[in-house]
Write a protein that binds this DNA or RNA. Structure first.
Length: 281
DNA sequence: CCGCGATCCTGGGGGC
DNA sequence: TGCCCCCAGGATCGCG
């Protein structure tokens, strides 16, 4: 489920159950996800209070009272569910019984927060909270697309001289952080730019459009609670509904919403790209 | 520096 | 029903 809007939706779902609460106990049911859990993972977080549930790009960053930051990535299929008597929406069962439930956090206040990840591309890590900028994936990472730093001028500078297709450039987390395959396709369609166009060859005025559409599609998707693909559910079991607002993603062969010509699908750097050859130049 | 393919995993869907 | 192949929201690494 996880591009920026989905991760932000998860963050908002976890915050009421975890923020300001002590982590009473952590159950890790295997020694690794994508990577091994860090050394003494359980001991290092049990008993600590989770002071802030934050997010950077597609990473959840939970700051703990002991100075550690618990960094969590959902990979492709990672999902969190909140169980028990907590404020807000939650599952009324005990939780932790599903296939691929790998980690269970027992929180002060009674919530059980369960991490499930079928493909195990997700991971958890610990890093000093006061030097997150030195955490390898964050070093060199581009701005958030909904930040003031992100603009047409920024893209103009970031794309300067780049001979890579704009689709690949936007997927590069060091250019802009948090976009993935779906929202890149959507933003390129909305701004009328071909995914094959070389990043460095796009006119400045088009980059202004692109920056605006990237921001808009991400903001709209956050408001919709993210996109639900397959049977993804957010922390309380509710579905995001932005998938109904897809204008180009996963619409191969269907009529373009602007010109009615069939939507094309190509593969770029191993990922599907959906676009309209007539509307995107 | 760049694009590309392979890779880490499991599951769902379509074709036969 | 079963089997096989392809596909999937991510990200890294090695190769040419």
């Amino acid at each position: 489920m996880p591009e920026l809007p989905e991760v932000e939706t998860v963050r908002r779902g976890l915050a009421p159950a975890m923020e300001g609460k002590r982590i009473l106990r952590v159950e890790t049911r295997r020694k690794d996800l994508r990577f091994p859990f860090p050394e003494n993972f359980n001991q290092r977080i049990e008993g600590a209070k989770l002071t802030l549930m934050g997010r950077r790009a597609k990473y959840l960053v939970a700051e703990l009272s002991n100075g550690e930051a618990l960094i969590m990535h959902l990979g492709m299929t990672g999902r969190f569910t909140v169980h028990g008597k907590t404020s807000g929406r939650f599952h009324h069962d005990a939780g932790g019984d599903e296939k691929h439930d790998h980690v269970v956090f027992e929180m002060q206040g009674g919530a059980r927060v369960v991490f499930n990840d079928a493909r195990r591309f997700g991971f958890m890590d610990l890093w000093p909270a006061d030097s997150l900028e030195t955490y390898a994936p964050f070093a060199g990472m581009g701005p958030e697309p909904i930040s003031n730093e992100f603009s047409g001028a920024y893209l103009h500078a970031a794309f300067k001289g780049k001979k890579t297709p704009v689709k690949s450039a936007l997927l590069d987390q060091n250019v802009v952080a948090g976009l993935g395959n779906i929202y890149v396709c959507e933003a390129l369609f909305r701004s009328g730019i071909s995914p094959k166009k070389l990043a460095g060859a796009i006119r400045r005025d088009k980059l202004e459009f692109l920056a605006v559409e990237v921001r808009k599609v991400i903001e709209e998707a956050i408001l919709a609670g993210g996109s639900t693909i397959s049977d993804y559910k957010s922390t309380g079991g509710e579905l995001g509904y932005f998938q109904h607002a897809f204008r180009i993603y996963d619409r191969e062969g269907e009529p373009c919403l602007a010109c009615e010509r069939p939507v094309k699908r190509i593969v770029q750097s191993g990922r599907s790209t959906f676009y309209c050859a007539a509307c995107q130049k």
